[in-house]
């Protein structure tokens, strides 16, 4: 819990500094016609840095007082979360190559087999029909082209 808290506080601090940096470039004064375009980012950045410092202080004080740390997630929760996160990231990465629909088909199939232990018949049917129907709906009917990836255009012949 503490580590994650510190990481997020630092994350905000970094964003705060990025904002400050760019605000200085844009100008953060009160110009002739109201604020310059860096004024808001400047105070946003300043605020974020201050907030994260305050948060870090609270974390430190709490650690001094309590000495122990609550867990970020319940025991054994990391595994199922990674079981969602990693395949999702995988799907998005595969999308870059074969397009979203095919990647999603693979993702669905993988998940149904490995987590759901669902029979091959259902697995194949679902992981084929769901992307197909969404492909027809979006790419063909609504004319919203979804990512094709590098080879998707070749792999889907129609």
């Amino acid at each position: 819990m503490r580590k994650a808290d510190i990481v997020i506080a630092l994350f905000f601090m970094v964003i705060g500094f990025v904002l400050l940096f760019d605000a200085v470039r844009l100008g953060f004064q009160w110009g002739v016609t109201g604020p310059e375009s860096g004024l808001f980012p400047f105070y946003l950045g300043l605020g974020l840095v201050v907030c994260s410092l305050l948060t870090l202080r609270t974390i430190y004080a709490k650690y001094k007082k309590d000495g122990y740390d609550k867990l970020l997630m319940p025991k054994g929760a990391l595994k199922p979360i990674l079981w969602v996160l990693i395949p999702s990231v995988g799907m998005v990465v595969i999308t870059e190559f074969v397009g979203l629909h095919i990647a999603a088909g693979i993702f669905l199939g993988f998940y149904m087999r490995s987590v759901g232990k669902i029979g091959w018949g259902t697995t194949l049917m679902v992981s084929f029909l769901v992307p197909l129907s969404l492909y027809i709906a979006f790419d063909k009917l609504f004319l919203v082209p979804l990512p094709q990836g590098l080879w998707g255009g070749i792999l889907i012949p129609f």
Partner: peptide, 9 residues
């Protein structure tokens, strides 16, 4: 196991 990947899709 079907719903979750479909939602993410």
């Amino acid at each position: 196991a079907i719903l979750m990947p479909a939602i993410i899709y």
